[in-house]
């Protein structure tokens, strides 16, 4: 129950941007408008009471045929308080786009590259947004639901 301080604080401070708040399975979750992501993340990191010092995980989910189609999912951890928080930011097609968190956590760099690689979501302000697990010539973004699992990729040969 203590962890709900987080939810309260976010609701108080960002009243207009919070879309939904819940704690199903005892996991605090905030759904947030993408415009205020950077502010909320800064707040979480710098608030002396909350101290979310970890960006533990960053991924995305493709809710195909739902609008908005994508959700970028952040998992934060506060070691000092043993709090965890899930932050979800809906992102709409076309040109799914969300602010980068690399300025706050350098670890976000690779996570965001992976999300870009797998989902094609752009991170504005990212210093080095290129594919990470797949190769540059790969066509499409495989974790999108409209990417068939058996799709073949064109063969690529050596460049020189």
């Amino acid at each position: 129950m203590e962890a709900n301080i987080t939810l309260q604080k976010i609701q108080e401070n960002f009243e207009n941007d919070v879309i939904e708040v819940h704690s199903r399975f005892q996991q605090d979750t905030v759904v947030l408008a993408s415009s205020s992501l950077l502010q909320v993340a800064t707040f979480l990191k710098e608030d002396p009471e909350l101290q979310y010092n970890y960006l533990m995980d960053l991924t995305a989910v493709d809710y195909w045929k739902r609008k908005p189609r994508f959700e970028v999912v952040y998992h934060f951890l506060s070691v000092a308080n043993s709090f965890r928080l899930r932050l979800k930011v809906p992102v709409a097609e076309p040109e799914p786009k969300v602010d980068t968190l690399t300025s706050l956590w350098p670890g976000a760099n690779w996570y965001e590259r992976e999300v870009y690689d797998m989902f094609g979501i752009q991170f504005t302000g990212h210093p080095d947004l290129r594919r990470i697990l797949l190769y540059p010539e790969f066509e499409g973004h495989p974790l999108r639901k409209d990417y068939p699992i058996k799709r073949r990729q064109p063969l690529i040969g050596p460049k020189h």
Binding site: M118, R131, I132, L133, L134, Y135, P142, L143, Y147, I149
Partner: peptide, 11 residues
């Protein structure tokens, strides 16, 4: 990295 990518999540 990525040389051992086997599409765990997609599978």
């Amino acid at each position: 990295i990525g040389y051992l990518h086997r599409a765990f999540e997609k599978h």
